[in-house]
Amino acid sequence: MENNSRRGFMGKAFGAVAGVGAVGSLVAMKQTWDPLPSVKAAGFTNVDLTTVEANVLVVEKWRGKPIFILKKTPEMLAKQNDEQNARDIKVGEDSYLVCIGLCTHLGCIPAYASGEEKFKCACHGGEFDTSGIDILLPPPSPLPIPPFKIDGTTLVLGEEGEEYKKMKEAGVTV
């Protein structure tokens, strides 16, 4: 009887030590797989908007992701509805689409068909209009707008400026 309770105690003592160790190692293992600080601090991307031509897609790289920048033509703007206008970024007289160029279905990069004025994803056939709004399944949502700041005619990606905050509040960034 006495032996049994001693064994019971030793078993529980081992269980406690092993439990603490197991939880500790899981925390360490989880965090070892987290993105490294150098990856997170990949920094900001500056884009000079003065060189962008209307209806010609510019693709910039930000945190390893492609960013689409499309300057709208006056004809496009004339046809736009409110939902589309809300996603435009205005710099001086010009309007731009700025969005993350990864299909919201499974992350392929849609191609821009300048003739048809829409983005077409080759993977599963999804389509987006010139404001990055999904117009053909399977993508469930518009192309997201990344955090940006307008600094004169320079677009700073990765920093949340006034314009971005307003768009985020209006719920048009995702």
């Binding site: 989880k30 797989w33 987290d34 993105p35 490294l36 990856v39 990949a42 945190r63 390893g64 992701k65």
Partner: peptide
């Protein structure tokens, strides 16, 4: 991002 160790597939 946790599975990739990055925003996109890269070295990690």
């Amino acid at each position: 991002e946790w599975i990739r160790g990055d925003y996109v597939p890269a070295q990690a």
